[in-house]
Design a protein around this nucleic acid. Structure first.
Lengths: 126, 126
DNA sequence: TCTAAAATGATAATAATTATCATTATTGCG
DNA sequence: CGCAATAATGATAATTATTATCATTTTAGA
């Protein structure tokens, strides 16, 4: 794998925008400063970085795949109203995996937990 | 909402094929016996039935949305090799929700848990 | 039986993502 | 340094999953 300026910019953009953006959103965030970078390159590099575990790919929240610069194991809360994504600490998962493994007999390697509800902002605005 | 023969067939197909099929797969399963039914009708009815909580929509496993005739709360295990989907009992979730709510202060209404690993078939075949 | 509302099939449109391919950039070596 | 091999890029076509459109057909109730 070779260095590329574009990859560096894409990663930096993701790090500076910790809002779990989609590929499209990363592209939009870049585009003002770096109008030359193509959407295909954004997709390519986000997928590459995710394969290398430099960043994390999140599916199953809404329509599009989102990307997260935070590779520490953690989970996500999606607001059912505004669709903002919040991080939730990991501590719960190991106990859950152990329990699920015991109950099902499956060889569980990892787990994704997606929580849903109304976020604080949407609750107070109601 | 009015009765339709197509909806009945679509639901029956899903019940008789508890493999968490995608809309496309439901369509393929139907098509041999009922070549008249259109793919659009399959999508429409799966979404309708999911809104009415007669069936359940599962996103975030792989690429496409899957459908599950089992509406009892439960979770899913996806084999990283063969991508088959297994059901996992619900018991773990309430404790997890309580713990996550306590830690994060978020108003959690529901949670989806997706477990990953190698399924028994793929383990023995290795 | 008649009519309004809902559902259908066929297909166009959209959205997200991946593939293609000619051109450009990076890297390591002589 | 300069050059070849390899990887990455930009532009865009292609693909996949899904939703929208709309004329026609079904359903259900008066």
């Amino acid at each position: 794998m070779k260095y590329s300026k574009q990859r560096e910019i894409i990663l930096k953009t993701l790090e500076q925008n910790a809002v779990h953006p989609t590929a499209d959103q990363v592209y939009a965030l870049l585009h003002a400063q770096h109008p030359g970078i193509s959407l295909a390159t954004v997709y390519r590099n986000l997928n590459l970085l995710a394969e290398m575990n430099v960043i994390r790919k999140i599916t199953g929240l809404d329509g599009a795949t989102r990307f997260d610069h935070n590779t520490h194991s953690h989970h996500h809360f999606v607001c059912s109203k505004c669709h903002k994504v919040y991080d939730v600490a990991y501590e719960i998962a190991p106990a859950l995996i152990a329990e699920a493994a015991a109950q099902s007999g499956l060889a569980i390697e990892s787990c994704d937990i997606t929580l849903r509800g109304l976020c604080p902002d949407c609750i107070t605005k109601n």
